[in-house]
């Protein structure tokens, strides 16, 4: 039990699972905030893969630096996303995607 050492494959599997959960959530959920959360899960899954790659296989600092940049971009994305959700809510009193359907075809 103690001598279980996680290797690169474990981290990559975890990352792929998180990414898939996030993608599924982003494509199926109807609430805008939940969709934003799903995108965050995708990005965090990617971050795990980045740091694992940088740690296990390659002697390269770029992976760690990249992960920091991804976190920053994710923060910016949430900031603009929440601002937009407020703007949407003000115009139609809902953030349910099923009701945001003025533009089609």
């Amino acid at each position: 039990m103690i001598d279980f050492m996680p290797n690169l494959n474990h981290f990559l599997t975890l990352s792929a699972i998180l990414f898939t959960i996030g993608l599924f959530g982003a494509l199926t959920k109807r609430n805008l905030i939940v969709i934003l959360m799903s995108v965050e899960i995708m990005l965090n899954g990617i971050n795990i893969a980045l740091v694992a790659f940088a740690n296990y296989t390659i002697v390269a600092i770029s992976g760690h630096v990249f992960a920091l940049f991804v976190i920053t971009v994710a923060a910016a994305e949430v900031a603009i996303g929440l601002a937009l959700i407020i703007a949407v809510f003000r115009t139609r009193d809902t953030i349910d995607l099923r009701n945001i359907n003025l533009l089609k075809w």
């Binding site: 993608l23 969709i35 994305e77």
Partner: peptide, 12 residues
């Protein structure tokens, strides 16, 4: 609506 659609799809 167009902005939120663009944001969500481009984020994914």
């Amino acid at each position: 609506e167009s902005a939120i659609k663009y944001l969500v799809l481009s984020a994914v």
